[in-house]
Design a binder for these strands. Structure first.
Length: 426
RNA sequence: GUGGAUGUAGCUCAGCUGGUAGAGCUCCGGAUUGUGGAUCCGGCGGUCGUGGGUUCGAGUCCCAUCAUCCACCCCA
């Protein structure tokens, strides 16, 4: 093959559309009902936005960004995640002067330079929301329930929710110090990776799957249990709201998310139907991020969820037909084509899906094509019809046929419009 | 960046211990001088991922390379 799509990318073909549209429409409806307005941000941003926002120590920034220099010598990066760009837009457009919180949702492509595998791509789509300008715990719950509602609406089964608490700049450093001391004490029993993690980003050791490390970590102090009173109370309130809304969750002290900006509530939805990449969506509170990138010191909370993973969890394989045709013109005599071209145009302008044969098929082939396209009505114009100034109208469901005059075209078009409108209503 | 598996027709795949490529589906046509979804028949379609090597001969064996998939890592 001469060319193929870049590694880790894929094409969305017409038959993939119905399922994807259903997902995005469900999200739009659910987010809109909760007062979220849609925002779109550029495909790329200044590299510095992600370095400062996502964090220089995160894997995403260290080795997964699509970074390039533009013709003006500026370093740009294809966005690897959705929160930093939205926050940048919030600051740039002075949204802190609007009524708070400002609620935004997005549907965007993200880019990360990773080795592809099941449910992981170099270009992927995410749906997400960001609620900026409030630290009310009910907003944390709102955001979590919004995502949970989306999965419910789409009937994604096998989804579970894990909750964590990252604390705040007042209490986390003390905990990290304590964890580091604990890890130092047990460093003989840790794997090489974990000893390295203990230095760089100690929380990451909780991700380790090595049995030896897991045994050690079972005894480790957990951040959820060592936050300050304010963070503890906030977390308690979030849990209370979730319970009131009837959402099951599991508090998981080992839940660690990949971005550095999280504070207090973090959460992750996992789906048993996914494979190794079991996370289907997640997010959390990021009370320091807006200030970090140069905006006012306002708290915020949000999530992102991957379209590909939702598709996978929904069974992915089921493809729908990309569209249903209403009227098909079977042309047997090229003399009829000018008339057909005009009739098609008029029907289409009225919103009727109409098509004809362009491949020189015989009548049988054209009927087959009409059937494939799901046409309700076929208008047959052959030599006979043309000579008599008539068109044969065939109802594809009943097989019944009748004739109509070809001229005036207005009458033929009105008749067809009436017919398909009837079909739509029935 | 690391490990494993796999690369044959547009799609899904067969091809035994090396002898020069097949099926099903799709598409087009015929059986039905101008009528769809069923059946039967026929046709189109492949430098067997690529490049070397071994051999009289390689889809089949060896090496390299590329790609895809799965897993690690990390995340959606």
């Amino acid at each position: 093959m001469k060319h193929q799509g870049p590694k880790g990318t894929y094409d969305v073909l017409p038959d993939d559309r119905p399922l994807r549209s259903r997902i995005v429409h469900a999200a739009a409806r659910i987010f809109t009902a909760a007062g979220y307005g849609r925002i779109e941000t550029p495909a790329f941003e200044e590299t510095g936005l992600f370095v400062r926002g996502v964090g220089a120590s995160s894997d995403v920034v260290r080795k997964e960004m699509y970074t390039f220099e533009d013709k003006g010598g500026r370093s740009m990066t294809l966005k690897p995640e959705g929160t930093a760009p939205v926050v940048r837009a919030y600051v740039q457009h002075g949204m802190h002067k609007l009524a708070q919180p400002v609620k935004l949702w997005y549907h965007e492509r993200m880019y990360r330079f990773e080795r592809p595998q099941a449910g992981r791509f170099r270009e992927h789509y995410q749906l997400g929301v960001e609620a900026i300008g409030s630290d009310d715990p009910s907003l944390d719950a709102e955001v979590i329930v919004l995502l949970s509602d989306l999965y419910d609406e789409l009937e994604v089964s096998g989804v579970t929710l894990r909750l964590g608490n990252m604390g705040c700049p007042d209490c986390r450093p003390a905990y990290l110090e304590r964890l580091r001391r604990f890890l130092d004490g047990a460093s003989d029993e840790l794997c090489e990776d974990c000893r390295e993690r203990a230095e760089l980003n100690p929380l990451r050791v909780f991700d380790c799957k090595q049995e030896g490390c897991k045994a050690v970590l079972a005894e480790a102090p957990l951040l959820v249990e060592n936050v300050c009173d304010a963070c503890g109370e906030h977390f308690g309130a979030v849990k209370g709201y979730l319970e009131r809304l009837g959402r099951d969750y599991r508090v998981d002290g080992t839940l660690v998310r990949g971005f550095d900006y999280y504070t207090r509530t973090t959460f992750e939805f996992e789906c048993s139907r996914l494979g190794a990449q079991s996370g289907i969506g997640g997010g959390g509170r990021y009370d320091r991020l807006v200030a970090e990138i140069g905006g006012p010191d306002v708290p915020a909370v949000g999530f992102g969820t991957g379209i590909e993973r939702i598709v996978l969890a929904m069974g992915g394989g089921e493809k729908g037909s990309s569209g249903r045709l209403q009227v098909f013109f079977a042309v047997l005599d090229e003399g009829a084509r000018p008339l057909v071209v005009e009739a098609l145009h008029r029907l289409r302008r009225r919103g009727v899906a109409a098509d004809t044969d362009y491949a020189g098929r015989k009548l049988k082939g054209q009927m087959k094509q009409a059937d494939r396209l799901g046409a309700n009505v076929v208008v047959i114009i052959g030599g006979d019809e043309l000579a008599r100034g008539k068109a044969t109208i065939r109802d594809m469901k009943s097989g019944q046929q009748s004739e109509l005059p070809l001229e005036p075209l207005d009458d033929l078009v009105s008749h067809l419009l009436e017919r398909v409108n009837g079909d739509v209503l029935s």
